[in-house]
Design a protein around this nucleic acid. Structure first.
Lengths: 208, 208
DNA sequence: ATTACATTGTTAATTGTTTGACAAGCCTGA
DNA sequence: TCAGGCTTGTCAAACAATTAACAATGTAAT
């Protein structure tokens, strides 16, 4: 689509998308970079420059049409097509994520849950039967799997990820507390809860 | 402690801490910035510069002592004292986080769970009885609460956060999909799962 | 003890990001 | 339709972060 967008910009796009969604809900039709900057606590200049990485979505003297801009950012973020997700590791966090994906996000669909514990076999979480990890290969070969969510202990993350990349998986949503070593072209999005808590702890300590 | 450390550096410290912890487990006694850089896939220069923000922890011709550096970073990240945590919103994610804090992190202690649903009153999650949100005020006045984890819908996040800051809460671990507007001096660490998924989705789309 | 080597801490250069400024151009009301 | 006011897109300047380079200094082998 576009090339060489800086990571800093990408990380801000979901936030724009969220604010625009709220404006839409509130029935706001148009917004200027200045108004938006005040709401979001960023500079208007940054907003205009960020958006211009992807195209001229606004109009002089008018601002941005909220619906249009929302849709455009949606396209940029890939919200126009469905992503099939499977999850490996149906513990507490895994169940929470399974539910989250099911109810919160319309462009993601949870289509499979896997665990290593035989006691969980066949049990249902948010309407999906839990399968065993050794059934993964067959499943992936017979279904379109776009994303694998890993909610497993760090020890198993690396071997499971390797097995999955060998089977052609191209994207991971990784909650295991380890950095996955994946082949070129495979995408890993990390959610490191522990790092997040540590950062919080640092800031608390600093404040005192 | 120290002043004006850039956010970029702070965000990397937990990762160093993690890698050093693993080296310790593997019985490695010393490590050079060069070795570490190869393992972590960052430049040696960045490692040395990051660490030097906090002091000269290494030695020429030798490198860094793993145990010493681990302990020093632990101090920097506030791992030397206990943080009492309470959690508001005992849904799927709340339960997962409650368990996570309980079992994964030694310097954090979950001391209270709160929900608005009367049906949950008195039930236990990871050994802690769920209380009602209207009991929050009394609890906070009688306990040392360092961090409040918010695992509630975005609609309730803002009012609850306001109430809590009024009661003197100084730090939030926020999982609600909204940016909290808090007074000066109050710390918010966000975990926006949705933003994370969107970033993943963007990268998948870009790859195609 | 001495020498060759390894490695840090630090300064300088480079690269990347954010902010400020303003010309160009659309909007709106008269 | 026209004039005045907004607001964008963009260029340039300021600022921040990363990388490279190297002198200073300790290590370790002989």
């Amino acid at each position: 689509m576009e090339k060489g967008i800086s990571p800093a910009v990408i990380r801000r796009m979901p936030r724009y998308y969220r604010y625009l969604g709220e404006l839409l809900e509130d029935g706001v039709e148009r917004i200027s970079s200045n108004d938006l900057s005040r709401r979001m606590h960023v500079t208007a200049s940054q907003i205009r420059q960020d958006l211009n990485n992807f195209g001229g979505f606004g109009q002089q003297g008018y601002g941005y049409n909220v619906q249009f801009l929302y849709d455009e950012i949606g396209k940029i973020l890939g919200q126009t097509h469905m992503n099939n997700v499977i999850l490996v590791g149906v513990g507490n966090l895994g169940q929470a994520i399974a539910n989250y994906v099911k109810f919160e996000k319309l462009s993601f669909r949870m289509i499979g849950l896997f665990d290593i514990d035989p006691a969980k076999k066949g049990k249902e979480v948010s309407g999906i039967k839990i399968q065993m990890v050794d059934e993964l290969e067959a499943f992936i070969k017979t279904h379109q799997v776009d994303i694998v969510a890993l909610t497993i202990p760090k020890e198993s993350a690396e071997p499971i990820a390797r097995k999955l990349t060998d089977l052609g998986v191209k994207a991971f949503w990784n909650f295991a507390h380890v950095d996955l070593d994946v082949p070129e072209g495979v995408i890993v999005e990390n959610v490191h809860l522990s790092d997040s808590l540590m950062t919080l702890s640092y800031n608390i300590t600093k404040m005192k």
